[in-house]
Amino acid sequence: MVQRKSPGDAAIHGFIIASMIFVVVVTLYPFYYVAISSISDAFELSRRRGFLLLPQGLSLAAYREVFRYQLLWRAYGNTVIYVVGGTAINMTLTMFAAFALSRRGLKGASIIMRVMVFTMFFRGGIVPLYIVVANLELVNTRWAMMLPRAVNVYNFIILRTAFQAVPTEMEEAVTIDGGNFWHVFRHVVVPLAKPSIMVIGLFYAVEHWNVFFHALLFLRSTRVYPLQMVLRNILIHHGGDQLAGDDTFASQYLAQTVKYAVIMVATIPIMMIYPFIQRYFVKGVMIGSLKG
């Protein structure tokens, strides 16, 4: 059945398509602009500012500066530690909680649930949290970046819902064979709920990659700074000027392209894995929206 569109409908569709193209351009152009500026020649770029479509001259000088900048690489290493270690802690605790509280017949489960959910609505606030972290002598240690946010209750609820959806027959099959809850966890629930576990793991990992405030709050020394903290010093507190080396005429220009290169270095990992993981994120939001 072919339907002819009315002129009004055709106009609306045209408008919608134009709007969508506008959205794509507005979303992507900033990244594109940063990318082409980062490989531009600093002096050429300074003469021709504005909306660029192509790099102005070609130069990797900015990247050379960035690669020489040890503080940035140490911070990169720290962030990797926080992402891997932090996510491991997150997942261990969140999966334990989600599994235990998704089993039937556990006495006290509803109280523990309430204790957890309550923290979504009321928090002690940053000062009392800081006092706890300080009393545990975690200030300025890597633990401060990994422990205080070990369980995200929202993620826990998503995972619990997924664990509850695992058919009980499979659990019974394990217990009849003499297996205990640990076997059920290892051999039934975890393998079957793998997609949801992946989603939650990715949520946590991105959070660790991006978080900045906790570093500001808990860390004092550049030794343990994560990437975002160093980025902030370069991009926002104008540390890029020092980064471009001596106070020469050329480095004045270079300081600009160095900033673009730093942004690139910090976002490329996310950009690279994004196409592969984005569908998991969407799935995660969908699971959450069903029973959130």
Binding site: T92, A100, G105, L106, M116, G124, P128, R149
Partner: peptide
Amino acid sequence: YWILYALLVPVIAYFVIFHYIPMYGVII
């Protein structure tokens, strides 16, 4: 069920230390 309680021990410890002690801390 002891296994489930064992799994919950670190979780409860986390919530007590990083949520409920700070809640108590608001008395400052």
